[in-house]
Design a protein around this nucleic acid. Sequence first.
DNA 1: TATCTAGTTTATAATAATTCTAAACTAGAA
DNA 2: TTCTAGTTTAGAATTATTATAAACTAGATA
Lengths: 139, 139
Amino acid sequence: MIISGNLKTYVQKLRSSNLRPTKQRLKICQFLFNREKTFHFTVETLNKKINKNIGTKVSLATIYNTVEAFTSAGYLKEILTSKNKSYYDTNTKSHHHFYDEGSKELTDIHYSQIKLSKVPIPPKGKKIKNLEVVIRIQK
Amino acid sequence: MIISGNLKTYVQKLRSSNLRPTKQRLKICQFLFNREKTFHFTVETLNKKINKNIGTKVSLATIYNTVEAFTSAGYLKEILTSKNKSYYDTNTKSHHHFYDEGSKELTDIHYSQIKLSKVPIPPKGKKIKNLEVVIRIQK
DNA sequence: TATCTAGTTTATAATAATTCTAAACTAGAA
DNA sequence: TTCTAGTTTAGAATTATTATAAACTAGATA
């Protein structure tokens, strides 16, 4: 398997997520992180992309496990939707989304495009972990 | 079955959702709309509440269908989460939520508690249907 | 370098939420 | 009262996800 010049960063991401760098996981990294633009996906779409190419086969279970580990390590972000399916985003910075109810597509909104002038105080003993805005759009 | 004094409003809600007022649907209405406070639920929790009481039995399928019809008619609002389960809210007004990652509970945030000073323009040909903020909190 | 073990991968089974189906039932118009 | 389109229901089917357990492997150690 040819691994791009990002090998080191993939290994570092995996290690810091408590995952050994295996060939399956490195392949997943290529599909996730070797990109110019932000990547939105579900496990289903990621699985299709990875496995339609020839080469190492990666099982669904491994994709689920790896995506889950990257999410809790903070390298991926779970997106809030009303669908019964998990959507992920490789852009883990604070940002927001348009959700098109017709096409069911998500588009990033850069954090600077939304400004909040008032945010509530969290309940006692709780801290704000993050804040996300989803703007549902339609024709 | 005893139906509260809200019978007329239930019938009207059902009719305007293109649903005939049947005894099952009226019973669902009682559990959804005969409340002082906003009610957050999943089909599972609603089903339990309805069917632990004696009286007419309402099947899961009917609950799914009715909740779905009320949602598209605008009498219920689907809540955005990262769980693979649909959450609904009887408060259909524009408002926001705290989502506690520990207890998995949702709490309303009154719309006046959040103010946006900048909102992006939607893509061409699309209109904003609604805007929701979810603040994830943790200990 | 060879060995060993804890971690990993995988196909498949299990589970959970939701949707579908088709037969029996019913609201309400005529 | 009759009739029909709409409704209810149990259970089957589907879909996303998680669990399982046997075969495999990274990489520490001898």
